[in-house]
């Protein structure tokens, strides 16, 4: 697959002297969904803004579909649709007009059929003659998406599409994104909801302090960094770990009624079989077994923490 987007050591230092991006390298494959994770103020929005042209990068090179975002900005930008984080809409314009306006701004010929298709896809068709002020929060967000799609972009940037949005609407957004992916649009989304990245993304990038701390396939990341834990519930509680089981680094849980064993999810030898036979040899009777995989959130928190420790 070819790269639809590539960033080479992109930097941004604001006039205030604050450096929001310290040389970010990044590529996006055609048709891919990339989730950029990071705490507030990590530089996610600045990164997106540099690509879309609302912020001028102070260094580095950005190419969209092979076109330089600065010198060939007309071609580069016409491939890009941006859904901003805040709901920026002119309150008194009508849904249909505002979506058509964006298409015009991007220099595309009028195509009412296309706009009708988008509005129907986003369940906004019934509201096409309503003024923006009359819409609910979720609908306004969908209007922003409709505007971003009006000129048939090949990459869509969603800046925190579900920030401050209730659970139903968040699920609805995920469905919208899934549909868009199916239609072949590449998507970059920023979020600080880990479950969102876990649910939608093909690849995950973690930004912290203006640096791309990591970027990896979601599944690989989960198996590489994900730890699993095996919880063994005992029939009778134990007060100390038997001598034969010391090497497993077991921990107590539930007042001695359970033992917890941690292992690497991706490891070829997990040691579970041996542990279970050693448990039986030690004369411990089991009631139940359960395993749990650490979520992306835990991975993310430990990554950010270890980075901060390394820096201080």
């Amino acid at each position: 697959m070819t790269n639809i987007l590539s960033l080479e050591s992109v930097e941004k230092t604001y006039d205030s002297g604050f450096t929001a991006l310290h040389g970010v390298d990044l590529t996006l494959k055609e048709g891919e969904i990339l989730a950029l994770l990071g705490p507030n103020g990590a530089g996610k929005t600045t990164l997106i803004s540099c690509i879309c042209g609302t912020v001028m990068p102070t260094g580095g090179k950005i190419t969209v579909g092979g076109y330089d975002a600065l010198t060939d900005f007309r071609k580069a930008r016409s491939l890009v649709g941006l859904v901003p984080q805040e709901i920026h809409l002119e309150p008194f314009s009508r849904v249909w007009d505002t979506v058509r306006y964006t298409r015009g701004l991007f220099g595309k010929k009028r195509d009412n059929a296309h706009i009708e298709r988008i509005l129907k896809e986003l369940s906004l068709w019934d509201k096409r003659d309503s003024r923006v002020v009359e819409l609910s929060g979720g609908m306004k967000r969908r209007v922003l998406i409709a505007k971003a799609l009006s000129h048939e972009p090949r990459i869509l940037f969603l800046d925190e599409p579900t920030a401050g949005v209730d659970v139903d609407l968040r699920k609805e957004m995920w469905e919208v994104v899934a549909k868009l992916k199916a239609s072949g649009v590449s998507i970059v989304l920023t979020t600080h909801y880990i479950e969102e990245a876990e649910a939608m993304a093909d690849r995950i990038g973690v930004i912290n302090g203006g640096r791309l701390a990591l970027i990896e396939e979601k599944d690989a990341l989960m198996s590489r960094l994900g730890r699993k834990s095996l919880k063994i519930e005992l029939e009778t509680p134990v007060s100390e770990i038997p001598e034969a089981l010391r090497s497993y680094n077991l921990e107590f849980a539930d007042d001695g009624y359970s033992l917890v064993y941690e292992y690497e999810a991706g490891a070829s030898r997990t040691g579970i079989t041996r542990l279970l036979s050693d448990l039986r040899d030690a004369g411990l009777c089991m009631n139940d077994l359960s395993t749990r995989q650490s979520s992306l959130e835990e991975i993310f928190v430990s990554l950010v923490q270890s980075q901060e420790e390394a820096r201080s």
């Binding site: 879309c52 609302t54 900005f73 930008r77 941006l82 920026h88 701004l105 505007k147």
Partner: peptide, 17 residues
Amino acid sequence: YFPKFTGTIYELLSAPI
């Protein structure tokens, strides 16, 4: 000024114009 105030200026800045 109105697009600056409502934030819709982002559209003008990200458009190929």
